[in-house]
Simulated assay, not measured.
Amino acid sequence: MPIDFSLTEEQKQLQALARRFAREQIAPIAAEYDQKEEVPWQIVEKLHEVGLLNAIIPEEYGGLGIGMLEEVIIGEELAWGCMGIYTIPMASDLGITPILLAGTHEQKERFLRPLTEKPALAAFALSEPGNGSDAAALRTRAERDGDYYILNGTKMWISNGGEADVIVVFATVDPAKRHKGVVALVVEKGTPGLSAHKLHGKMGQRASGTYELVFENVRVPVANRLGEEGEGFKIAMNTLNKTRIPVAAGSVGVARRALEEATKYAKEREAFGRPIADFQAIQFKLADMYIGLETARMYTYYAAWLCDQGLPHAQASAVAKAYASEIAFKAANEAIQIHGGYGYMHEYPVEKLLRDVKLNQIYEGTNEIQRVIIARNLLKE
């Protein structure tokens, strides 16, 4: 079968819809909500209206059932408008994915359909105050009590944690068992004993709500467990192997925005009697930004294609996430350099691009962890 790099008509339509939404709805308010550190709920409502919220939910449960490549196409566009705002639907897809991977038909009907009927979000709660990269070292306990689990512990850095209607929580039945003791439980908003505390003072992505979640004797039905006891760690890792690809897509969107802003400014700004775009030093910066952007996008598409084909994609996902996020950070940094002193000020959007995309190198597995994954796969081969 020949390789085809063209998008289908449906994919082009989704891209156009997301691009228009980012330009008309997200970009104009991005700076405002970054400064206010508030979630723009009206954007969540509008994403729901146009069908771009929770779109990975299968049609059987009320969603669009889009594939990973479509998710990537949409993600690049929304992140172009604001990486922080894009993180809201991206983190919701992160919370939905373990239910898609390990949930029964009844669980999918019960937890996913309500997320398509109104503007609603999901969340993924794995990290804790004392561990992030060491995901098997969980301290949040899930003690069996008849038909319930009793949850006690704290989760940290949880995107959408305070807004989500559905939270997939990873806990341990016995810390000594490490990954073999992890269980995945779906906790619904408003469950007694669950409290959410918003974290303030983030460097970037400030329009996305990040929370500490505290569980105090939270009773969760066994019927809310995904898979069996001991399968939670595998569910979490399989989820992240998929959802690192949309992080890469967001990074591509930021890199594209950085290149566009830098190119525009280089044509307008004059020095020594001519636009700075005439100087080879600036031209080389723009050329390198373009090389990185195109390479990152192509590899992100490749990782998405592997995922959609049902082929092994953990390695490609790690490469895409690490490479795209680093390329985007470099592009944002160069955009600031091209803007000079103005790039350091809120007046221009490039300083926000740098602050926002730094987190892409950290969440859903730091880029150091991505290199561990890549190296282990290489050594297995």
Rank of each mutant, 00 (worst) to 15 (best):
V183A: 10
L185F: 09
V186N: 06
V187A: 09
V187P: 07
E188P: 08
P192A: 09
G193C: 04
G193M: 02
L194N: 09
S195D: 11
S195E: 15
S195V: 14
L199V: 09
H200Y: 15
M203E: 12
M203R: 14
R206C: 02
R206D: 01
A207G: 13
A207I: 07
T210P: 04
T210M: 12
T210K: 10
E212H: 13
L213F: 12
L213H: 13
V214K: 15
E216S: 14
N217R: 14
V218H: 13
V220H: 06
V220P: 04
P221C: 11
A223N: 09
N224E: 03
N224V: 08
L226V: 03
L226A: 04
G227N: 08
F233V: 06
K234L: 13
K234G: 06
I235T: 05
I235N: 03
N238I: 05
N238F: 03
T239I: 01
T239A: 02
L240V: 08
N241L: 02
K242P: 03
R244Q: 14
R244H: 07
I245G: 00
P246L: 02
A248Y: 01
A248P: 00
A249S: 01
V254S: 00
A255N: 02
A255K: 00
A258R: 00
A258Q: 01
L259F: 02
E261Y: 01
T263C: 06
Y265K: 13
A266P: 07
K267P: 04
K267T: 05
R269Y: 12
E270T: 14
A271S: 08
R274H: 10
R274C: 10
P275N: 03
P275G: 02
I276V: 04
A277M: 11
A277C: 13
F279N: 07
Q280R: 14
I282D: 09
I282T: 15
F284N: 13
A287V: 10
A287Y: 12
D288A: 13
G292D: 07
L293S: 02
A296M: 04
A296E: 06
R297Y: 09
R297E: 15
M298P: 04
M298Y: 09
M298G: 10
T300V: 04
T300R: 00
Y301G: 07
Y302L: 12
A304K: 00
A304L: 03
W305Q: 14
L306W: 04
L306F: 03
L306M: 05
L306K: 10
L306D: 06
C307H: 13
D308E: 09
D308H: 00
